[in-house]
């Protein structure tokens, strides 16, 4: 996993609540056995008018000319709800997003982001509204700083919190499986004490 310290990028404001992982990556694209090839299908049913993905939907915000090259996704509450499919954050990452900002995230999606190195930033509703207003009116470029846990565009500066270990994993690009494999003796001694039925 890549280390994350700071990132500066263009924000695309996706003004929808309860965006579920079926919207992020619809089921017809889940039949791959690799981790790559999902970015082109991100938000497929909203992003394209046809099933093949040849005809971009000009009314979908990701297709607006001013948001091309965006790397920070701004969304509303309960982002990433529904299916546990990690294909959703894989698609978001492969499209080019490094950060997702929302007032709240679904638990499984949030954990999946941390595990692959996307920074999920939770901010209060009021600050989210401010970001939406700015991003809609003019292009908004933000710097997400994981050393100071802030996001800023020079004028606005907001702080956000991450769990200590999540923060460490993102900053250091930790291989969490490798980390736990260093604890095998503890796991073994736990297993030795399990009752027969378990």
């Amino acid at each position: 996993m890549e280390k994350f310290t700071t990132h500066t990028g263009l924000v695309v404001p996706l003004d929808a609540a309860n965006v579920d992982t079926d919207q992020i990556i619809p089921k017809q694209f889940l039949q791959k056995t690799e981790r790559v090839g999902f970015g082109q299908h991100l938000f497929h049913d909203w992003r394209y008018l046809d099933d093949e993905g040849h005809q971009a939907n000009p009314e979908f915000i990701l297709n607006y000319p001013q948001y091309q090259g965006a790397s920070i996704l701004l969304a509303r509450e309960n982002f990433g709800c529904g299916s546990s499919r990690e294909h959703a954050p894989w698609a978001i990452q492969e499209y080019g997003f490094k950060v997702v900002i929302a007032p709240s995230f679904a638990d499984i999606f949030y954990g999946n982001c941390i595990n692959i190195g996307i920074v999920p930033v939770r901010l209060p509703e009021e600050q989210i509204n401010q970001l939406f207003d700015t991003a809609r009116d003019a292009g908004l470029t933000l710097t997400v700083d994981l050393i100071n846990n802030t996001i800023t565009n020079g004028e606005l500066t907001f702080s956000f919190e991450l769990d200590n270990f999540h923060q460490y994993c993102l900053e250091q690009g930790i291989d969490s499986v490798g980390w736990t494999l260093n604890k095998l003796d503890k796991i073994q001694s736990y297993e030795d004490k399990l009752p027969a039925w378990q």
């Binding site: 546990s84 499919r85 990690e86 954050p89 499984i108 954990g111 999946n112 595990n115 692959i116 969490s176 499986v177 736990t180 494999l181 604890k183 095998l184 796991i187 297993e191």
Partner: peptide, 14 residues
Amino acid sequence: GIGTSEVEHVFATQ
């Protein structure tokens, strides 16, 4: 429910 990275974590470490 868990994501695929967690499936891998369970495979390797239980």
